[in-house]
Computed example of a mutant assay.
Amino acid sequence: MVRLFTEDLSIVYGEKLIVKDLSVQIPDQKITTIIGPNGCGKSTLLKAITRIIPHHSGSIVLDGKTVSRENTKVLAKKMAILPQTPESASGLTVGELVSYGRFPYQNGFGRLSQKDYEVIDWALEVTGTINFKYLPVDSLSGGQRQRVWIAMALAQETEIIFLDEPTTYLDMAHQLEVLELLQKLNQQEKRTIVMVLHDLNQAARFADYIIALKGGQIVKAGDSNEVISKDVLRNVFQIDAEIGKDPRTNKPMCITYNLLKGEYKK
């Protein structure tokens, strides 16, 4: 089932065409990961779909309606995004930050209802951050802060969550912690997760569907066995990779690689 898709989408930054005529479908209630080299349009695509930036041409459709014409609060009840570098939460407690996720549901007075408080506590419980509720966000570790930002996105009660490089700046243990949390939200809460990742092995391990971008266009889209392959990685990243199997998940795994140094061009 597909609720969200783009048709012939083009996105321009300044005078530069970043994404050109991109048609992509996001599987519902699955984890989709977007991979590709720096500057290929991964983050730009997420921002355009969530209407942070405008698109030049084409369309983005959610539940049969064009996203660009949708009411802002209605859209915020369907999609949440955690950007690559969240805004500073200086001076806020964890509970206060997570409460911002309830903005789409507040009336003109901006007061939190009993339902709002219940959802906030639920989001904190699910992300394992309830014990941090009254602590300053600035006092937490990187992994803890990332879980709190995810809690804020969860508090929006959206069925689709976008994350732009959610593991950036985290150590290996905290990366795994965040990705396992997202997997849990997908499997237990049926949330559709769309995220940008740089680590190919993490993408292969956690994604149901992978989109490989290069130059703003799709090189390959499919499951991990289709995308994490020698030929696709050669085309997208200009590397000669050795692909094996993860002994714990049986998913493909990039064991090692060399730069092609210009002998392969496409």
Rank of each mutant, 00 (worst) to 15 (best):
P104M: 02
D223W: 14
R191G: 04
I130W: 08
M172E: 12
W149Y: 14
M195Q: 14
T6I: 05
A173G: 12
Q175G: 02
E189A: 11
Q146I: 01
R102D: 02
R102T: 00
Y105D: 01
R111V: 01
Y13A: 03
E15Y: 01
A204N: 09
P166L: 06
A155C: 10
G216S: 06
W122S: 02
R102E: 07
K190L: 09
I218V: 12
L181C: 09
Y264T: 04
N225K: 15
Q114N: 15
G95P: 04
N235Y: 11
A123T: 05
F5A: 13
R102A: 01
M195C: 14
Y209M: 08
I81L: 13
G41E: 01
A155N: 07
L9C: 07
Q114S: 14
L92Y: 14
P136Y: 13
V178C: 12
G222W: 15
E125V: 08
D164E: 09
K133V: 10
K77C: 04
L82W: 00
A221H: 05
F109D: 09
E118R: 07
P83Q: 11
L185G: 09
V137K: 12
T32Q: 13
T85E: 15
S57A: 09
T33Y: 06
L260W: 11
I81V: 06
V227T: 09
I18M: 02
G110C: 08
P252W: 06
K65A: 11
A155F: 11
K214Y: 07
T168L: 14
P104R: 11
K78C: 01
P83G: 08
S43H: 06
P37I: 00
K73M: 02
Y257C: 03
A153E: 08
D121I: 00
P136K: 03
G216Y: 05
W122Y: 04
E180S: 07
S99C: 10
E125I: 10
S23T: 15
G64F: 06
S23E: 13
Q146D: 09
A76N: 05
T66K: 13
N201L: 03
L4P: 02
G262Q: 07
D121H: 12
K115G: 05
L46C: 10
I150Y: 04
I31K: 08
N131M: 15
D21K: 15
E226I: 00
Y117K: 15
L97E: 15
R145D: 00
N131I: 10
V126K: 14
R111F: 14
R69K: 15
R145H: 00
W149F: 15
L22R: 09
G91D: 12
G41A: 03
L259P: 00
G14D: 05
A207V: 02
Q175M: 03
L82Q: 01
L182C: 03
G14K: 05
S57E: 14
Q25K: 11
K266T: 06
T72N: 02
K30Q: 13
L135C: 13
R69Y: 10
P252T: 02
L92M: 15
G128K: 12
N71G: 01
I255Q: 15
N38S: 07
L213Y: 04
F5Y: 15
I26G: 09
G143A: 02
L46M: 14
I52L: 13
V19K: 03
G101F: 06
I31A: 03
F132I: 05
Y134S: 15
V61Y: 12
